[in-house]
Design a binder for these strands. Structure first.
Lengths: 246, 246
DNA sequence: CGAACTGTTGATGATCGTCAACTGTAGTGG
DNA sequence: CCACTACAGTTGACGATCATCAACAGTTCG
């Protein structure tokens, strides 16, 4: 795994700074939230459905996803999370988890006690507002996924997903040059797209045949960013990556 | 339209009280947010994509929906909103709207200035937290919709939607006895489900044939709630309708 | 070496979209 | 009053997209 990162809070701070200035004191508060990093093996649950966690989980390294398992055995992933994401921030207010969270790859995470978040909300409301803002952006991503599911054909859907993940990783300096490490199986990818694994495989090959991407093992290369973006009808405004004037 | 409602804030207060106690003072603050109700005709935009509204819109009466229009002319609704919902609460922090909001029926709404929300966040943090909590539940609903889109067949998907809307309306005392007024066209319904209008019509008839519901004009009657719920694999935990102990 | 898993391909069928036509209803204007 | 329009709902025919089942290759790992 990548050990080059200086601090476990680096990705989170990069994310927050895209929203607004983060003062030196707030930065210290964020760093104090990180008590001890914990390793989670790929394919195991960070949080299970029905849990009432006493902490929110911050991803330091690796990929995780929210998912729901249906009675017929099928599974749907409802979001994917990258370093810097509070993957179950809402459990701070909502208590019961109505979905599970799985590690798509080996992960390093930090469990931030809800009590600490409560303190932050009282002593550093501006910082708390930045966390809330990130949760609202999660909602915007959900809505874009709904659009992809409902109105984009599978190849466009996959292309759109690749654009999104690339820009999310680029924003925390984990991807550049239209190249990203995204070590996920086609089975998990199918559960993101809401497709069968077989069809997912064929759709992926279609993007390869069209010279839009290569996807070899864990490494995705976007061969023609403008064409991929147009093909996917990708408009990144919903990620709110540029800071809004206040 | 129904004029029996005593106060424009009735639905909102019912919603908030499901989350936590609302003090008399907080109730007064909520009522002060409602300056002037405004009528919006069915099929017109409450907010348009790209807008930077200076207020958040609270629905007093009628149904509204968030939507996105795609270049090929197709449209996807990403959420539907009932009285008591802040339909664009996130614009308070996120500024630019990356989707539009349309009135599915004639609506009465209130436009609450962001400046007022800012004041509330400073003087009544507990109340603001309840608003935030509602926004997080919106996210949970989005996730459940993603599951429906990805892994439920059209008849299950529609059944699930009916269950959800019924319970949301029941929670603000706008539906009871497994009967609800939901005056929406099959075209809009198709744009919720991500289906064509023709297929939506057939799916609807399937539910009618199965004696699960009647849907005559604006009125939906759920004929067999347990069977509809089982058929849809509907589990309402994600709506967080019961108050959590603190 | 076998076991388990991922990726891949082919064959077949189910689900859903598209096109077209027709019905009923409500409104609109002469 | 009636012709005319507009639109929601409905039905049939046909085709595209996607799921399912089965088989097999390549890799890793014990």
């Amino acid at each position: 795994m990548d050990q080059s990162r200086t601090s476990p809070t680096a990705a989170l701070l990069l994310k927050l700074r895209q929203r607004d200035d983060v003062s030196a004191e707030e930065e210290k508060v964020v760093e104090d939230l990180v008590a001890r990093t914990k390793h989670v093996a790929a394919r195991s649950d960070l949080v299970s459905e029905g849990d009432r966690p006493k902490h929110s989980t911050l991803i330091i390294e690796g990929f995780a996803a929210r998912y729901r398992q249906l009675p017929d055995g099928s599974r749907q992933l409802t979001s994917i999370h990258v370093p810097g994401d509070f993957v179950d921030f809402h459990s701070f207010l909502l208590k019961e988890m109505e979905h599970g969270i799985t590690a798509l790859t080996d992960c390093y995470v930090v469990e931030v006690p809800h009590a600490s978040l409560k303190t932050v909300s009282e002593t550093h409301p501006h910082l708390m507002r930045l966390f809330n803002l990130c949760a609202l952006i999660d909602g915007a991503i959900h809505r874009e996924w709904l659009v992809s599911m409902g109105r984009r054909r599978a190849p466009m859907h996959l292309a759109h997903l690749i654009c999104e993940i690339y820009e999310l990783l680029e924003a925390v300096q984990l991807a550049s040059n239209h190249e990203l490490r995204f070590p996920i199986t086609q089975i998990d990818l199918a559960d993101i797209l809401g497709l069968s694994a077989v069809h997912t495989n064929r759709v992926l090959q279609e993007l390869r045949r069209s010279q839009l991407i290569t996807w070899d093992g864990a490494v995705i290369k976007i061969l023609d960013w403008p064409r991929l973006r147009d093909f996917a009808d990708y408009d990144n405004r919903y990620l709110h990556l540029v800071r809004e004037p206040r």
